[in-house]
Amino acid sequence: MNATDDAQRRVLELLWKDARRPARGPRRGLTAEQIVAAGIRIAETEGLAALSMRRVAVELGVGTASLYTYLPGKAELEALMADSVGGDDPLPDDWPGDWRAKLEAWARNDHEGYKKHPWVLQLVATVAAPGPNLLRWMDSALRVLEGTGLTEAEKMAVVESVDAYVRGQARLGLDAHEPSADEMRERDAALRELVDFERYPALLAAVRAGVAPYAGDKFEFGLRLLLDGVEALIASKRAPTS
């Protein structure tokens, strides 16, 4: 087992072996939950880049060394933070309606959450250790698709596809620069002067129809197309065979 495997094992043990209570150190004092809450406050107000064991210690008014009696290090802290994020949100199967309504509600809720708390998107992209809350969420998401006729592999593919779509759209939204009206006018004037759009007939047709590339919220359109595909797959499973 190499160093990476050892670190992964430590993170998983912390998540799953009731290690949120200190293994050593004072019987009274901090809890891992308090440390995680402090880490989340820092990420929320200062961004994930500001997170460190030293910064968390300052937030809690303790010495940095004392934190290591509760958590081995920053990687373990981030794993606990990732597992706690969204713990109070409805699970996919808690939303009302049929499978499609549940997936739509879950996707919209997660998308809005990522937009409001962008540090969460960064955190879940870097933490690979699945904790209890993550597996509870995955179990719930798979239950949404029970009775659809999909195979277990297809159910997992649907859940992972919708999750990847939501994260990807959220990431695009975070990375995108929203130009001002003046910037848009200056850009468009420069493009008209510099670019022969007749060389791009399909794009020109779209622009003449009033469609601006890289503008507007495409989330709902893409989600509808994705779920239309899932619905077609489910329908094919139910279609009578000749």
Rank of each mutant, 00 (worst) to 15 (best):
G113M: 03
M156S: 08
R167C: 06
Y114D: 01
E146A: 14
D139F: 08
V124E: 01
R9L: 14
V230Q: 04
V207A: 12
R238I: 09
G149I: 10
K237P: 01
L51R: 00
R54C: 04
A232V: 11
M1D: 12
P179L: 09
L103V: 03
R54K: 11
L30S: 02
G25S: 05
S52N: 08
V158W: 04
W137N: 00
R208D: 12
R224S: 06
L142N: 08
L227E: 05
A107L: 00
K116E: 12
M156V: 11
L227Y: 01
E104N: 02
A43H: 07
Q122R: 13
A3S: 13
R187M: 14
E46L: 01
D89C: 06
K218D: 15
R24C: 13
P179E: 05
L135T: 14
E160P: 05
L91S: 07
P240E: 11
K237H: 14
R20H: 12
W95D: 02
R185Q: 13
E152Q: 13
A7D: 15
A235C: 06
A128R: 15
L174C: 10
L145T: 03
P26I: 09
R136C: 00
D89F: 02
G25I: 04
A215W: 09
L227K: 00
K116T: 13
P179T: 02
T151L: 09
T4I: 15
P201R: 06
E193V: 05
W99M: 02
G63I: 08
G87K: 03
P201E: 09
S180R: 13
G87L: 10
A105Y: 12
G210R: 11
L226C: 01
H117L: 12
A206F: 03
L15A: 04
R9Y: 13
A189F: 04
Q34H: 06
L142R: 05
A205E: 11
R55Q: 11
E183K: 00
D196P: 07
D139S: 13
R167Y: 07
G47I: 07
Q8M: 10
E78C: 11
A190K: 15
W95P: 05
A105F: 08
N133C: 14
A79V: 10
L60Y: 04
S236A: 15
W119E: 10
W16M: 00
Y70T: 09
R55A: 10
I234K: 07
K155F: 06
K218Q: 15
E44F: 06
A215P: 02
I40Y: 08
T148S: 06
R171V: 01
L71M: 07
A239P: 08
A206N: 14
N109L: 09
A202D: 15
V159S: 01
A153Q: 11
A23Y: 04
D5S: 14
T241Y: 00
S66N: 12
L15G: 05
E154T: 10
A49K: 13
L223K: 08
D182L: 09
R41V: 08
L12F: 07
L51E: 06
K218E: 15
W99G: 05
S140K: 06
V127S: 08
G210H: 12
L123G: 06
Q122V: 03
G131I: 00
K115P: 00
S66Y: 14
R108G: 03
G113H: 06
D196R: 03
V207S: 01
A190G: 05
V159R: 09
R224K: 14
E44H: 15
V36I: 13
A128L: 14
K115S: 10
G39C: 08
R28S: 14
K155M: 14
R100S: 02
F219G: 07
G25F: 00
T31P: 00
